[in-house]
Amino acid sequence: MDMFLYMDKDSLLHRLDPRTKIFIMLISFAIALMFSSLSILLVLSAVIILYGYTGKVLANLKRIQVILIMIALMSVILWAFTYPGTTRIWGPITKEGIIYGIAIGIKFDIMIISGMIFLSSTKIEEISLGLMKLGIPYRPAFAFSTAVRLVPMIVATSYTITQAQKSRGLDLDTGNLIQRIKKYIPLLIPVLISIIRQANILAMALESKGFGYSDKRTNYLEIKFTASDYVFITIAFLILLFAIYFKIKYKM
């Protein structure tokens, strides 16, 4: 089973400089955080989906669809009850609450999708190289990219461990909340121990290949800004300016 997020495709998005993609991702975060209006967030998500479409990486969203739906649902339920709306539908639930809940759900989903598009179209090495070019020292940049890499490793290990414990009679589907939480202990401990062990070996393997030999390190990958990078950055920047203008003018 392939647990890695990066999708090795040949697309305009893949060829962009990682710095451009980091920049676009941050702008999408900023705009999503600025607004809580459903219509604006819907437009923004359409733009981001289109952006992901150019990179042929939307298939990855399927893998996290459950998470996306759960977040949206949780938000709707939470805000439906708590938002101080006036149009009552049923009990404490108001129309405004539901709409606001949907908007907030979309806001979070946008950020996840945007991050997902970035990770799906950018090699881990490109991310750390991009971070370095942005002035972050090699070690933290490498640590960050390694952390990203460890996630699929953890997922794969957890999968095996879950099967092993199920074979011993672990039944995660019954019992009350506390009982269920307790049932995760036989999963968590072996997962943690495996990760610590794997991380230790990884650290040894890194040192054995000269990690930290000197501060001057060459990079096999080359990244540089091309015309399309400038186009994407300009568009993203204009959208951001427009959003700020919109925000101030209409006080949304």
């Binding site: 881990i124 090495e125 390694t146 290949k209 000269g210 990690f211 030999y213 000197s214 096999y220 990958l221």
Partner: peptide
């Protein structure tokens, strides 16, 4: 830990500049 085979092999030489 690398994204592809090539980069995995490149890691050591990169460290040595």
């Amino acid at each position: 830990f690398s994204t592809n085979t090539k980069l995995e092999i490149a890691f050591g030489p990169e460290n040595f500049g």
